[in-house]
Design a protein around this nucleic acid. Structure first.
Length: 465
RNA sequence: GGCCCCGUCGUCUAGCGGUCAGGAUCCAUGGUUUUCAUCCAUGUUACAGGAGUUCGAUUCUCCUCGGGGUCACCA
């Protein structure tokens, strides 16, 4: 069975890059009928917070990425790690190192001065002497001093590291006994049964160290897929300074989960020329072997396009429900269908759509100056009055087509083009020159409101004519 | 600096020795529309550079250049 995991460190909110690797892991597990596990890497008490962990979970919930089983919290597993530390110590695969931080720093300085690679010198690797029981020490693992470490990566291919280039006896337990990252990752992934690790390629250079741990412990090494970074427009690793990288900010801005996920799945991964992927299609088609080898630059143009695509293609009742998150309650509006049909093709985001709805429902508070100047000429008043009279004397006005007929009549009777009535009427109803079809707008606001807005507009703007 | 990864239109990408180098987005133009948007059509723009292998390289190899990542008792 394929088991994948997402293992964030709760130092802040869930960001775009993390979400993408989480999505990839989720999809690959689902595609194979496997499991997608969650592990919170909260061993650094000073930097982690519960709020951050909760924020990550909340983002998962919004996006509908459900994980399997219980969440693993590393902070609760010290007992487990201690067992393996002891095991390695007993098997002489790890040892106590009594070098002080000062001595270590000094060692580094000397190495740097000599332009050598900075690394631990193995001073206590074969130390047999006695030290007081309370002597401060860290635990280091005996890493291979020579030979190759080969990372078999599903994205990049086989990568060979020379042990002498990159390894030293790295610390697996700190002075206070707490285990370090590269050590616990290997243990947790093994204990959780993780078979495939999909993570950012900033972890690539950690992987040889983790392989050392796997091998020391006799664990099977999982399959790795190192996903290239997402870069900002400067070509650097995406960071919190690059604007909206908090996943939940996308909700606030009015993006739908489908659009965001579709956007992310296509960032670094592709399936031929296909651009639009439903969740079902993603789960069906995703395969980490098709992940691109090179980094991509973060750019939201396509996200906007996808978002408007999903809005356009959403059923109205689903849209109405989504819109509630932006303070718009439409369930009781009797012209809900007309309203949503008129606007869903015009909005790039749900937030924008909520604004557009309000611009129709609420009478204009002011009239755009340029619009008035351009289309509110003397003849326009005459045309508007003629149209208003027709509205007043009509009984059955419900559908957009009812209003359209009235407009048509005015156009015919006065022998004018549609633009002659359209523009001033639009300004009267909406206060500006752009917007949805006027017949729809009038059907939505109804007969009385239509009459009122025309009258108000004429009253308000006659003076300036 | 050491080690590692990467390099096709501005951006996301297809390509897996022979293609007019394809799609999407963006942008521009035209059409549709009472306006704007949508929609439709058309168009501009790319294989980082140099050697080599080959009848033939975007594709394989090497070098150069460029970009990125990583080098902790952080994760």
């Amino acid at each position: 069975m394929i088991v994948t995991r997402f293992a964030p460190s709760p130092t802040g909110y869930l960001h775009i890059g993390g979400l993408r690797t989480a999505l990839f892991s989720y999809l690959w597990a689902r595609k194979n009928g496997g499991k997608f596990l969650l592990r919170i890497e909260d061993t650094d008490k000073a930097r982690n917070s519960q709020e951050a962990a909760a924020a990550i979970l909340k983002a998962f919930e919004w996006l509908g990425l459900e994980h399997d089983g219980e969440i693993t919290y590393q902070s609760q597993r010290d007992d487990i790690y201690a067992i393996y530390i002891k095991q390695l110590l007993d098997e002489k695969k790890a040892y106590k190192c009594y070098m002080s931080k000062e001595e270590l720093a000094e060692l580094r300085e000397t190495q740097m001065a000599n332009k050598e690679r900075t690394k631990y010198n193995g001073k206590y690797r074969d130390f047999e002497g006695e030290m007081p029981d309370d002597a401060e020490c860290v635990i280091r693992i005996k890493a291979p001093l020579s030979g190759d470490i080969i990372v078999r990566d599903g994205v990049k291919g086989d990568i060979t590291f020379k042990a002498e280039d990159i390894l030293d006896d790295f610390v697996i337990a700190r002075g206070d006994g707490s285990p370090t990252y590269n050590f616990v990752v290997a243990i947790d992934d093994h204990l959780m049964g993780v078979t495939e690790v999909i993570r950012g390629d900033d972890h690539l250079s950690n992987t040889p160290k983790q392989i050392v741990v796997y091998e020391a412990l006799g664990f099977e090494v999982p399959k790795f897929y190192h996903v290239p970074m997402i870069h900002n427009s400067e070509g650097k690793k995406l960071s919190k300074r690059d604007g909206a990288t908090d996943v939940m900010a996308y909700k606030e801005m009015g993006y739908t989960p489908e659009a965001l996920l579709n956007f992310l799945v296509r960032l670094g991964w592709s399936h031929g020329d296909q651009e639009i992927f439903s969740m079902d299609e993603m789960r069906e088609l995703f395969n980490p072997k098709d992940i691109n080898k090179s980094a991509s630059i973060y750019n939201t143009e396509k996200l906007d396009w996808l978002n408007s695509h999903y809005i356009k293609n959403s059923p109205n009742n689903a849209l109405a429900k989504l819109l509630e998150q932006y303070g718009l309650v439409l369930t009781s509006h009797d012209k809900k269908e007309i309203l949503l049909d008129a606007l869903k093709e015009r909005a790039k985001t749900l937030k924008e759509m909520a604004t557009l709805v309000n611009e129709i429902i609420l009478a204009p508070l002011s009239y755009d100056e340029k619009a008035v100047e351009k289309s509110f000429k003397a003849d326009a008043i005459e045309i508007l009055n003629a149209f208003k009279e027709k509205v007043i004397s009509s009984d059955e006005l419900h559908l957009p087509s009812d209003y359209h007929h009235l407009m048509q009549e005015v156009v015919n009777e006065m022998a004018i083009g549609f633009g002659k009535i359209g523009q001033p009427l639009r300004v009267a109803l909406l206060g500006k020159m752009s917007g949805p079809g006027l017949d729809s707008v009038m059907a939505i606001i109804g007969k009385d409101e239509t009459i009122l807005r025309i009258s108000n507009a004429i009253a308000a703007n006659t003076a300036s004519v």
